[in-house]
Amino acid sequence: MLIVKSLSFSFEHRRLFQGVSFQVEPGSLLHLKGANGVGKSTFLGILAGIRKADKGSLEFIDQEKKAHSDIRMVSAYLSAEANGLYTKMDAIDNLRFWCTLRGLNPSDDDLVSSMETWGLGHRLLRQNFPVEQFSTGMRRRLALARLSLSQASCWLLDEPIYGLDDKGIKLFRSHLKEHLERGGLGVIISHDKLAFEGIKTVDYHLKSRVDQAKNEKKDQG
């Protein structure tokens, strides 16, 4: 279970959001909603450990009821505008590197089969073929292959279907569904509902500063 308590964040003396609290149960997908520029990606970055919140706390309680205050141990993050791949290196090297960094030791067969699952099965794509020569969709598929290899319980997804074709989107949905059925959980930002079509989500609306101020005034009134 992911527990977010009173999270606040300011950027260059401008309050972006404050007092954000929610819980995500195992098997649930939280859809983080909000207008452009409201701070959704920044918020996800805080959950992923890339940024530090000004106030508030994060906690993840795993299936053995063990609490993790550093949720980097149990989460896998997918950024919106980038895939986090060493572009001069090949796909297998990239996958192996990120797995080893997590303490996983997948065999070559595991890596190849993961690539095959994501439609990157052609043998020429695996080795001695730099990722920079992949198309946008192929890079996204490789990043998703890394995500599914991560064995992380909590998926943090920022516009995950960016660049994917119809087949890729279907594949992503089936993996996401499988992850949730296994007891995993996720937080997703996506303006395209195709990303989670057919999957039950819990919505959380991240409010802009103006909306927050209006609400505060209303409460005072």
């Binding site: 450990g49 993050y77 950024s79 895939n83 986090g84 060493y86 572009t87 990120w98 303490g103």
Partner: peptide, 17 residues
């Protein structure tokens, strides 16, 4: 420089490194 390509650095920050 290699870590700054494709936001690898941000991903490293999100890993239990």
């Amino acid at each position: 420089v290699p870590d700054q390509q494709d936001k690898v650095f941000s991903l490293l920050q999100s890993y239990p490194l």
